[in-house]
Design a binder for these strands. Sequence first.
DNA 1: CAAACTCCCTGTTAGC
DNA 2: TGCTAACAGGGAGTTT
Length: 288
Amino acid sequence: MPELPEVETLVRRLREPVIGRTIENVTIYWKRTVARPAPKEFARMLRGYTVRSIDRRAKYLVFELTPRASTSLRSAQRAAVTPTLFLLIHLRMSGKLSVVDRTEPRAKHDRVVFDLDDGRQLRFNDIRKFGKIWLVADPEMVTGAIGPEPLDRAFTLPKFRKLVKSRSGIIKPLLLNQAFLAGVGNIYADEALWRAKIHPRRKTDGLTEVEVATLYRSIRKVLRTAIEDEGTDAGDGVIEGDYQPRVYGRTDQPCYRCHQPIQRIVVGQRGTHFCPQCQPQRGPGRRR
DNA sequence: CAAACTCCCTGTTAGC
DNA sequence: TGCTAACAGGGAGTTT
């Protein structure tokens, strides 16, 4: 399941083949993949638009597009009538993006195919059809309610402390809440909590100052490391990175710190992996 | 406000 | 061997 590091990796890989390319045509094989506007309108609007940049916000890929440079308009004129559009793609569970020659036979679960002006295609393939694509004038229309980027310079420990204190409830579901923090999914929530030695069922208001600070550093460390490793290979072909989870998917295998078997429980309806020894339910014993 | 639950989907896997 | 049912999970929306 692609999370922040996997999406970041994909964005970096797509820049070289896609930036500067103009979209000549769009074929939609599964209409519900297109969230907005309506599929016909979506395909019509994109034609003739050139990709200027590709970035990431939370787990969304954000493509900035402007109309193909036209020599028939003076630049001032063009500026006045040139609407920048943003194409946002969320891979959800099984979405994949690839750039291939258009002669390549269509894959089974290709949902939307963008014809580029160099004979290649950007293909969105998605087994489970959970993935969505938007075309909007302002990316905030889609990502407006999402919390801060954990790797932003502006996202400091005081900011995180304040954020945690503004909420009550169980820590793991909170980490998964995109309105709280952007881009953390099931894998990296478990990984960060293991690193911080915090039990996933702990309540936020029971965390010590030190634990909150450690969690802050753990989240950033885990995400940075995973980006360096180009993501986690979940075995579903979404991305084939080298990040090796310490707890996620390691049920019954020994903890890398204390060799106790990793446990799998359900927290907030999500499969959750943790070390019962390193991450005690009670938290750190009071010093006295 | 928090948290549980439902829905969207299909490939994989456990159970019979 | 072959079938069915349960399961996985991000996130929006709904209900408790």
